[in-house]
Amino acid sequence: MMFYLFDIIIALMTIILACLCLFSRQAINSITYFIALGLIVALIWTRLGAYDVAIAEAAIGSGVTGALLLFSWRKLRAAKSNITLTENTISKKVIATAFFIVVIIVFSLSSILLFSKPNSALAYLVDSSLSDSGVLNPVTAVLLNFRSFDTLLEIGVLFLAALGVYSIGISLFDYELKPSSNFLLHSLSKLVVPACVLFGGYTLWVGSYSPGGAFQAGAVWAGALILLRLAHPRLLARKLSPWLLTIGLIVFIAAAIATFVINKNFLLYPALYAGKWILLIETAAAISIALLLYSLFFIPKKINSKSAANTITDDAGESI
């Protein structure tokens, strides 16, 4: 009973925060509501028992995306002195229609949820063949064994996103930080970065038998990298190799080809070593995800344009 009350409260808060996020006039308010919305959605995932998704939602959906939005807001504010979102020109008919559609979707979804059996055939299928997958965590088994083709394409999409970022080549964080501007940030990075590296590795390793995995580890490592870069701007400047960004995709495709050669089937792992294949792919994917999320904030400028090449003197640091 108590938990139902809690569920109703967070469900209502989600809807209210989403409305506030969409309809507030100031961009900064929308961003704040969006970050709060991400945390509430992470709470929902926790209540559903999907701790993997909750970690990813809190770290990527709320943390990284929120920080990106804040950086863009700062950029926009520097460009124009005052930004307000455009006036709500949506007519009431559109709103009424949208509301009607949402009601229909909610009604049909809830009726499906109410009248369908909780133990669907799919869950049974996953449970019954979990022992063949090489891992004990059903989420990892689905993501990296049963439906690994989907995950391969997801890593591909991430790689495309990185390509897009590189080709646009706008660093959101291009103003120079003074190296010794903040000694407290230095001491925090000494405390937190090793813990982040350790926790990311732990999440990656533990993903085979309990919640965790490549995306969570990548998010934690990206956070560590971003903090390190903020605390020591010169330490990580222009040493990000594009090869490391693509290593997840490369290893995944190599695994697909190798499994095709061995087993005559894409991504059908050898039965005895399935767990090791999965761990290898996940490690590579985690490195790529971490560097991708990091590169959304700090892009080595040398790659993108000829004009930037004039300003950069230490080409030796670049490792393409």
């Binding site: 903040n182 407290l184 940030l185 925090l188 405390l191 937190v192 813990a195």
Partner: peptide, 13 residues
């Protein structure tokens, strides 16, 4: 302890 360290630092910033 980690939240204590980070949040006090964030408030300082």
């Amino acid at each position: 302890l980690f939240i204590l360290a980070t949040s006090s630092l964030m408030s300082f910033i």
